[in-house]
Nucleic acid binder design. Sequence first.
DNA 1: ACGAAACGAGACTGAACCGTATCGAAATCC
DNA 2: GGATTTCGATACGGTTCAGTCTCGTTTCGT
Lengths: 219, 219
Amino acid sequence: MTTPLTDPAPADDGAPGTSRVPGARPRGRPRSAVAERAILDATMRLVAEQGSLAGLSIEAVAQEAGVGKATIYRRWPNKEALVIAALEAAEQPLPALPGDNVRDDLVLLLDAMRVNLIDARAEGLLSAVLGQVKQHPELGRRYHEVVIEKRRDAMRDVLRRGIASGELRDDVSIELMKDLLAAPMLTRKLMQELDLPPELPALIVDTVLAGIGTDRPQC
Amino acid sequence: MTTPLTDPAPADDGAPGTSRVPGARPRGRPRSAVAERAILDATMRLVAEQGSLAGLSIEAVAQEAGVGKATIYRRWPNKEALVIAALEAAEQPLPALPGDNVRDDLVLLLDAMRVNLIDARAEGLLSAVLGQVKQHPELGRRYHEVVIEKRRDAMRDVLRRGIASGELRDDVSIELMKDLLAAPMLTRKLMQELDLPPELPALIVDTVLAGIGTDRPQC
DNA sequence: ACGAAACGAGACTGAACCGTATCGAAATCC
DNA sequence: GGATTTCGATACGGTTCAGTCTCGTTTCGT
């Protein structure tokens, strides 16, 4: 992709760089927001494709983004910082939860996860990060903050509400419930490369709620 | 590790190399089984450490194993083949299942998974393979055959038995049951780096069997 | 118009690594 | 003992890439 990139006319670079003086605008030519997007997009694509930071080269990113290497190094000091910026830029907001009904809220949360996992870039980034946590602890930490914890907290709120309302058992830890609900779709995609049909979230939620056993002590 | 490696006296190299003529023993010096083990062990350690094939160098394997590079290339043509051999060599047998009781068999299976995941090498190899499937489809295929499918089939048999005996619902697909049971421990270890306490398998099995909801249509 | 900074392109140095080849020593068969 | 093959070690040419720097050009503020 060597399409020439051009910024829109006045190019209102609100926050193009990563670390800039908070004071007045500097003197020379402002940094291109278009180039920045192209770099982050290319980074996402290539990390997802390579499955690791070791397999990602800055040179390939520059090529793929149609950008000079200096334009990348001007913004981020190394690969790890670049990948962290890319994953933060790609993060999507969680769906609004009506809150009428715990079961439906859980299905909504799982469906948001499902849509995200279907995106090859997000799924590739996830599996790459998993393998690179030991080598790049800062990357793992930020992924947790930006991606994992946000979802975990949202689900925890719903589960807490369900326990309070009596829709969920009060003798099972919230952490365990969360893992039981969220994990199956992840492993389906990550380990088996299966597709995730739209009805899967509801199926998982209903089955986890009801259990797969036939006898039940508390009945 | 530059400890000098020595084979035991007669060094009964039953199957040291990977591709050898099935006929009579060749003429020269036989291949060292000790070197072979050292290479495979070093490969496992380094892949787990690097989290990817791209981050693994044959030179580092030779160094870590205390072996010349030629000794590696004599056996395997490239990195992918080497890593496949390493994962196959590290594979452990599954536990014997008494079969008296579906619940207990499931706990045994999950506990075998748990013990495996606690091993840093096995866990590191798993997360590395997950990220490298796109780049190395053959590696993914073999991992599936050797590791995943064996466990999946064992669990499927137990679940089928449970449905037949009436211990499990007959209106939930076996694939879904398997994912509900196996996935939570995987994501705990892979995504959250939590430890896996010994009581976790029983807790997961019992909770999935009973369900986390309080109301139940079929009661 | 002028200076300042960013732009794409690519030259450059140095490091890491691949895969092959060569060395003398060691292990095995005939 | 001689032929043969593997051993660890290391040298070798070739490739890829990191990170810096230098072009000439472009886009801003003044």
